[in-house]
Nucleic acid binder design. Structure first.
Lengths: 156, 156
DNA sequence: TATTGTTATACTCTATAACTATA
DNA sequence: TATAGTTATAGAGTATAACAATA
């Protein structure tokens, strides 16, 4: 009866501590979750402009600047000139960026293993299956964590 | 492999949209989630001092002030004098606060129903059971949503 | 005239620390 | 000397709007 008991409240609580824990795991690599989000998507769409990427991730242009700034400062991403449009900057992963991404994937896999430590593989699959059947699961954008992007944009 | 696929990422995404949706459902009642959190706990521990409640909810004293202010302005909670300690204020629900709480519970129940619309009661129970078996579920404080309280305190 | 990236600005949220009145 | 509540202040994070270069 009380909201402390339901599926919604439980997932909401768990989501918070899970993402907080992931943030902690990422910290030793000197990476914040939203930097990780962008880094990952740069890898998947190399040569994209900042705003094209920002649109896909629902991150406003002005925010993309500082995120890409930080990634570039760390030598993980490069802003290259775009030959066909001198306004736009083509984003590319550096070799160091690629190595970093590999490291973060290991962290993510270990995180997942720790979370599901007490579940058999079959149970884990069943869990994913049921989570995907929750109504609100349909409005998720694959691979994009809404908490790391604009709240306004996410609501629209 | 990619973090977009795992249980952790999925719960983290879902938690965000679920709590965002609950916030939207609460909005027509003129209540924000953290006001709801405090209101609910005042009901469970009537006569508590602000700081006693804040300690249980991991909300720092200075923040409690404005939350209780807003609840008092709306006539949902009363600060009464404490006969044994004139520094402390005893928090009590008003009749209007009690009615509001009943309304929010209806909202919460409807929210839960909507989320789990495509699950049978048995599946829903199974889902709760598996969520509770996730490692990080052990560090949850019952009934307290960490996102609405101090991040620092939650980490400690 | 529209668009890319950038900068400037303002706003929200929150914690820390000072302050008062009691204890 | 310590504690309850309050107020003041400062910091982080973020969006909106103005701006310069280019289309």
């Amino acid at each position: 009866m009380s909201p402390g008991a339901g599926v919604g409240f439980l997932i909401s609580q768990l989501g918070y501590v899970i993402s907080g824990r992931f943030k902690d795991l990422l910290a030793p690599l000197g990476l914040e979750p939203r930097q990780f989000l962008v880094l990952r998507h740069v890898a998947q769409a190399q040569g994209s402009s900042q705003q094209a990427l920002g649109k896909a991730l629902r991150i406003p242009p002005s925010r993309m600047v500082s995120i890409v700034d930080s990634l570039e400062r760390r030598g993980l991403v490069e802003r290259r000139a775009n030959p066909t449009d001198r306004r736009a900057r083509a984003l590319h992963l550096t070799p160091e960026g690629r190595r970093m991404l590999a490291r973060t994937f290991k962290v993510a896999v270990e995180h997942e293993r720790a979370i599901c430590a007490d579940l058999s593989p079959a149970e884990r699959e069943m869990l994913v299956g049921m989570l995907r059947r929750l109504t609100l699961a349909r409005q998720l954008v694959p691979g994009v964590h809404p908490a790391l992007t604009s709240e306004e944009a996410a609501a629209s």
